[in-house]
Write a protein that binds this DNA or RNA. Structure first.
Lengths: 131, 131
DNA sequence: GCCATCGTCAACCGGTTGGTTGAATAAATT
DNA sequence: AATTTATTCAACCAACCGGTTGACGATGGC
């Protein structure tokens, strides 16, 4: 049943080292744009660098960051370095965030959250249940 | 219909500045652990710092990073700074990642991805459709 | 063989990060 | 009033980040 998704159960906590590099890689707009372009198919290093007004060397560094984070795979074809999206780490990050999904859904979104903010200032709260 | 979720449509591209700070904040295991603790309810700065062998000043900096990323709200009660999770930016990040969801689902997961990797080395691929 | 092209590497630079220490602020306790 | 408790602030540090430049290696076209 579970298939590939079963990998993610209990993977969230243990793969913390991966999360460091993945979230760090995603924390830069240039790299996010590169991933967006790679969602359209394979791209060479030069193609990925083209939208930006940075040197090829700088783009090369960004691509290496994405690569060590496992977000892309590189295949050298002659003198071209062809990059391809690897969605695995994105899925891991998505899965990690999903743990918090209940906080922005199920009667905690929109107006209700604002009301809760007002509420928290008053004495009613007994104590947050300990983790 | 969409309700609070409709906010996120077309928010992904424009709120890029937020994504920078949010993903950066998530790129640190200490801060992720703090968020996990905050998922259990309100925590003071001291309580958040307790699991780590760092100074309170260092923890205070981490908390400020989470705060400017919008991931937590702080409320000063007497001499205690009580922190509370704000799920909004987490939802934004989750939404951003969801754009790539099709890459790890729908016949691109598990074995099929491996086969695709083998496949890409051969001439069959005509050209990735642009964007 | 020659030259242009694609990409990396190494060195450097200013800014940021995560950590420390020590002093400062402010509120609760005595 | 004196002290303890909770937290921030300022200064400092080594490490890292994103960018540049210039040199280098390898491939492909002529």
């Amino acid at each position: 049943m579970a298939g590939a998704l079963s990998i993610f159960n209990n993977m969230v906590e243990y793969e913390a080292p991966q999360l460091n590099t993945v979230f760090h890689a995603l924390g830069d707009a240039t790299r996010r744009r590169m991933l967006r372009d790679l969602a359209g198919g394979e791209r060479t290093v030069g193609q990925l660098a083209e939208p930006f007004s940075i040197t090829l060397a700088a783009a090369s560094k960004h691509i290496k960051v994405l690569e060590v984070a496992g977000l892309i795979r590189r295949e050298v074809r002659g003198r071209l370095h062809v990059c391809r999206l690897d969605p695995g780490p994105l899925a891991t990050a998505h899965e990690w965030l999903s743990v918090y999904e209940r906080f922005w859904t199920s009667r905690l979104d929109g107006l209700e959250r604002l009301l809760r903010e007002e509420d928290a200032a008053k004495p009613s709260h007994p104590k947050g249940d300990d983790q």
